[in-house]
Design a protein around this nucleic acid. Structure first.
Length: 279
DNA sequence: GCCGGATGGTAAG
DNA sequence: TTACCCTCCGGCG
């Protein structure tokens, strides 16, 4: 779930439901109890996404920082009778939080629960600045600086597949987008980052931005072009039909039929087609 | 029902 | 590089 597009989607949803509202904040699990007490009842001013990080700014309080890590996630329960209408839960029916619920944000309209995050913490005054200082440009932000990413890549002799996962170079890419973007660009993950020429980079940057934006729009990662989609089950794509190479080790490449290879790169499993991404 | 991996990151060795 | 964090889910039986 959580690459950059997921984080931006959460930010958008949480802004929509919580911005300008007094929020009841609690920590059913207890591990964020002290922080929750400090935020409880305060008005949420903004929610901002930067790479894979979320920042919640409350009136008169420290900023809440959330990072989902590998398996963190939010669950949203909308209340029925909300002025915005639609289906939802009545207060009496709302299921109790799971024991792992680190954070709960509640208004009369919605209950949002966070489980399994790597971080859920209150930041000191320059905490957000410190975190953002170690993040490269975020392709999902309007102000993202492509030239800064190009410059960072030129300085690296490490494989491009490692550089793309380094959040200091570019913020928000995870293992799925690494595999898929490099495949679409015909670039081998092991190619040294500094050997990409300007055309290679432009193509890669445009691909990454497009994929993240599409993931944000769709709410999931679907990188395969519609014309290349194969099997469906009742109109829905099978899990391994949504990607070109990610998690398809040993299966035939959609473009050329060569068996997809998997190998470790930057401590994660990388996937590539040896024919379409010549080394 | 259990087992193992997973779209991440950090800190230790 | 490796261990660990801590949760969910699919594959297997």
């Amino acid at each position: 779930m959580p690459e950059g597009h997921t984080i931006h989607r959460y930010a958008r949803e949480h802004r929509r439901w919580l911005r300008g509202r007094a929020v009841e904040v609690s920590s059913p699990q207890g591990r964020f109890a002290a922080g929750a007490r400090l935020l409880d009842g305060r008005t949420l001013l903004t929610v901002d996404a930067y790479g894979k990080h979320l920042f919640y700014r409350f009136q008169g309080a420290a900023t809440l920082h959330v990072h989902l890590g590998l398996y963190g996630g939010f669950r949203e329960l909308r209340m029925v009778n909300s002025e915005r209408g639609g289906d939802g839960w009545s207060v009496a029916e709302v299921p109790p939080p799971t024991p792992g619920t680190r954070l709960q944000l509640r208004t009369p309209e919605v209950t949002i629960r966070l489980s399994g995050p790597t971080s859920c913490e209150l930041l000191d005054p320059d905490g957000e600045t410190r975190i953002r200082a170690r993040l490269g440009p975020d392709p999902l932000r309007r102000d993202s600086d492509a030239e800064a990413v190009a410059a960072a890549l030129r300085r690296r002799t490490t494989p491009i597949g490692a550089a793309l996962l380094d959040q200091k170079v570019v913020a928000g890419i995870g293992n799925v987008f690494r595999a898929e973007a490099l495949f679409v660009c015909g670039t081998a993950p092991l190619r040294p980052a500094n050997l990409l020429d300007p055309d290679d980079f432009q193509r890669l940057w445009a691909t990454i931005r497009g994929m993240l934006a599409e993931g944000l729009r769709m709410g999931r990662i679907v990188t395969v072009e519609p014309a290349e989609v194969g099997k469906r089950t009742r109109g829905r794509l099978l899990a391994d039909e949504r990607h070109y190479v990610y998690r398809r080790a040993g299966l035939p490449c959609r473009r050329c039929g060569t068996a997809i290879r998997a190998f470790k790169l930057a401590a994660r499993t990388a996937y590539a087609c040896p024919t379409c991404q010549p080394w």
